[in-house]
Amino acid sequence: MATSITSVRGLARLLGCVVLAVFLTACQAGKEQEKPKMDMKQAGQRAEEILDDTMEAIQPSVKWVRGVAMVSPCSTNLNEPTGTTTVVRSRNILTVVSERRRDELLKMVQRHWKKRGATDFDVHSDEKMPRIRAKTADGLTVTLDVGYAGNVYIRAAFGCAQDSAMTYPKGTPGQPGGPDEPERIPREHSPYWSGTGS
C-alpha cells in the first residue's frame, strides 16, 4: 500500500510539473515585451480568491486542502531572465467524486467560471481523466483536472507576473506553518458526490 501511495504521489508531482510547463508555454509565446499586469504577490492573492470562490460554488460542498504553490521564472526565447515569474496556486479535493458524478462537477465549475466572465474554454472529455481549462477576465488560467486515481484538483495561474515578494495563506504546503506535502488522495465520502445514485 505504501508503495502504491508513493507512486501516486510521484505521478501527481510529475503531472503538476507538466501542468506548470503548459502554463509557462502559454505565457511566454510572443509576450516577452508586454508589461505584466500584476506582480507576484498580487497574482498569488488573486489566484487564491478565484480558488476560494470556485470551491464555494461547488454544492453540495466538498472537503479540500491547499495544494503546492508553484513558481517558475519566465525567460525569453534566448533563455534570458525577464524579471517575471509564473505563479500557480491550487486546491486538492479530498472528497471522493464517483465516476458518475465527475461530469456534473466539471459542468458545475464550468458554468461558474463562465458566470464570472471566463472565456477561451478548452474541454477535454476523457472518460477517466477529464479536464477543463479557461482564461479569466484578468488574465489567469484556471483548470480543473481529474487524475488517474480519481483525485480532483483545481489550479489558478498567472503567467509571468512582475517579480516581487510573496505572501501565502496559512496552511500552504511547503511554507512556514504548513505541511511539507499536501494531501492528494480522496478519502472523505459524501452521500452525494461519492454515491452512484441519481
Score class of each variant (00 low, 15 high):
95 T>D: 02
46 R>K: 13
16 G>N: 05
69 A>E: 11
75 S>T: 04
186 P>D: 02
197 G>C: 06
177 G>Q: 13
90 S>C: 01
13 R>W: 06
82 T>P: 05
8 V>C: 04
162 Q>R: 11
3 T>P: 00
49 E>N: 07
193 W>M: 11
189 H>N: 11
12 A>W: 11
86 T>C: 03
197 G>M: 05
35 K>W: 04
195 G>I: 04
117 G>C: 07
127 E>N: 01
103 D>A: 13
74 C>F: 02
169 P>C: 11
18 V>D: 12
81 P>S: 07
74 C>V: 03
177 G>R: 10
184 R>I: 10
80 E>I: 06
110 Q>F: 01
175 Q>W: 13
15 L>N: 08
109 V>N: 09
78 L>W: 06
94 L>S: 09
61 S>P: 02
157 A>W: 04
112 H>I: 03
187 R>F: 08
10 G>I: 00
6 T>A: 15
45 Q>K: 11
135 K>S: 12
61 S>K: 14
171 G>H: 08
151 N>G: 13
31 K>Q: 13
66 R>A: 02
102 R>L: 14
58 I>G: 03
152 V>Q: 01
179 P>Q: 02
111 R>L: 12
75 S>M: 11
140 L>H: 11
182 P>G: 06
30 G>C: 07
24 L>M: 10
137 A>K: 15
10 G>Q: 14
90 S>P: 02
48 E>L: 07
62 V>C: 03
122 D>W: 13
45 Q>M: 00
162 Q>M: 12
101 R>L: 05
6 T>P: 00
87 V>F: 04
194 S>F: 08
81 P>D: 09
184 R>M: 08
36 P>K: 01
93 I>M: 10
162 Q>I: 00
107 K>V: 08
8 V>N: 05
168 Y>K: 09
165 A>G: 09
83 G>P: 08
122 D>N: 10
40 M>S: 14
189 H>R: 14
196 T>M: 06
119 T>D: 05
11 L>C: 02
69 A>H: 02
190 S>L: 00
113 W>Q: 01
24 L>I: 01
8 V>A: 13
29 A>R: 11
114 K>H: 14
1 M>Q: 06
145 D>P: 00
23 F>E: 10
122 D>I: 14
16 G>Q: 06
94 L>R: 09
137 A>F: 09
77 N>A: 13
2 A>R: 12
121 F>K: 01
159 G>K: 02
41 K>S: 05
60 P>Y: 10
122 D>Q: 14
194 S>M: 05
147 G>A: 14
60 P>C: 03
175 Q>L: 02
82 T>W: 07
166 M>Y: 05
93 I>G: 03
42 Q>Y: 09
89 R>F: 07
163 D>P: 01
51 L>I: 08
73 P>G: 07
174 G>L: 08
166 M>L: 15
63 K>T: 14
39 D>W: 10
179 P>D: 04
67 G>A: 10
2 A>G: 15
85 T>G: 01
192 Y>S: 07
18 V>I: 15
69 A>I: 00
108 M>T: 15
177 G>S: 08
123 V>R: 09
53 D>V: 03
112 H>R: 12
38 M>G: 00
100 R>E: 15
82 T>D: 10
141 T>G: 00
159 G>I: 04
133 R>N: 06
38 M>C: 03
